[in-house]
């Protein structure tokens, strides 16, 4: 098991190198460069070309592409994430400030969608064809097809403005710092962010559960004279769980992508919100780091999914 984890971590290195290169290449190919962003447009037009070139040289932009990539990636590997072009703040500081908020939101949404999705999916499968199952199916289709920002706006309208149960947005109020103080702020964005994934997990858990329940070992379990709940949960759900966990792993990028929008809607001070403004202002160093971070998050998540799969399904043999 440990050798497997070590090996998986080692295979992450070439993947990160390839992906970071693609990120760098992608931004290299976009029009404009750092200098064109740093200088206000009106001044840019009147500046003489030699002066601009000088500025580029001083920023290291005159060097060949591969050399610049090397300087960037070796810096990143040593913990030097560079500086944001907007305000010259170290990117590591932005990450430290913003990352906890994004992680908090994503993990909350992940937990909600996993737990709620599998429970509702299981109920749906166990009551197949009933009114419960049919209404859950309709709700599931709605959840998958309606975009999250719409849910976000509706939720704000109902729960924040009309009912005044929850705050409109933000992560906290000045002076309130404990997790419990922040919790009301988290509820709405996390719920809204999890809707689409909950619906997906629910539909998937339902079919996975139906598949498990139709297998022969369910009949064997029944033939032992065990109560229905034990047959359904211990034998059915446990087997149905493996594909659901794999699905959740694959859906993680969706969650990260979704949090970019939700953070905007709820004024959540996370990395996603920072990402949008960085893209808009061509803040390349920051865009690259956020992109690289998302990739890492997905890779680590898929590693965790593989390990979980191995734990719950003995047929998946790891390492030795």
């Amino acid at each position: 098991m440990l050798t497997y984890i070590a090996r998986r971590l080692l295979t992450l290195i070439p993947m990160v190198i390839v992906i970071s290169f693609l990120i760098y290449l992608g931004l290299e190919l976009t029009p404009g460069d750092a200098v064109s962003h740093m200088i206000p447009p009106d001044a840019y037009g009147s500046m003489d070309e030699d002066r601009l070139q000088e500025l580029r040289e001083s920023l290291g932009l005159g060097k060949p592409f591969l050399v610049r990539y090397w300087i960037w990636i070796s810096g990143v590997l040593q913990g030097d994430f560079g500086y944001s072009l907007a305000g010259g703040v170290p990117i590591s500081k932005i990450f430290l400030d913003r990352l906890p908020a994004t992680l908090e939101l994503s993990i909350a949404a992940l937990l909600i969608s996993t737990v709620l999705g599998s429970i509702l999916g299981t109920i749906s499968a166990l009551t197949r064809g009933s009114l419960t199952d049919q209404s859950l199916t309709v709700v599931g289709m709605l959840g998958v097809s309606i975009p999250e920002f719409f849910f976000g706006l509706v939720a704000i309208l109902i729960f924040a403005l009309n009912l005044e149960w929850l705050p409109v947005g933000g992560r906290t109020l000045p002076g309130y710092d404990s997790f419990w103080d922040r919790l009301p702020h988290l509820v709405m964005p996390a719920m809204v962010l999890s809707i689409m994934m909950t619906a997906g997990v629910m539909r998937y858990a339902r079919s996975s559960m139906l598949d498990a329940l139709s297998r022969d070992f369910i009949r064997t379990a029944r033939s032992k004279g065990m109560p229905e709940w034990r047959v359904n949960i211990l034998h059915g759900f446990r087997v149905a769980l493996t594909p659901v966990i794999v699905l959740i792993g694959f859906r993680l990028p969706v969650l990260i992508g979704g949090s970019v929008i939700i953070e905007q809607v709820f004024q959540w001070p996370g990395i996603g919100k920072e990402f949008v403004s960085a893209v808009r202002s061509q803040d390349y160093p920051l865009v690259m780091m956020v992109a690289l971070f998302s990739v890492l998050a997905v890779l680590v998540a898929s590693l965790i999914v593989d390990l979980l799969t191995a734990i719950i399904d003995p047929r998946v043999r790891l390492g030795d």
């Binding site: 070992f217 064997t220 379990a221 033939s223 034998h235």
Partner: peptide
């Protein structure tokens, strides 16, 4: 008690 036709599928794969 009962035993079934196909022992490959009659046992639950995730339990010892």
């Amino acid at each position: 008690a009962m035993i079934f036709q196909d022992p490959m599928t009659a046992l639950n794969p995730v339990y010892s």
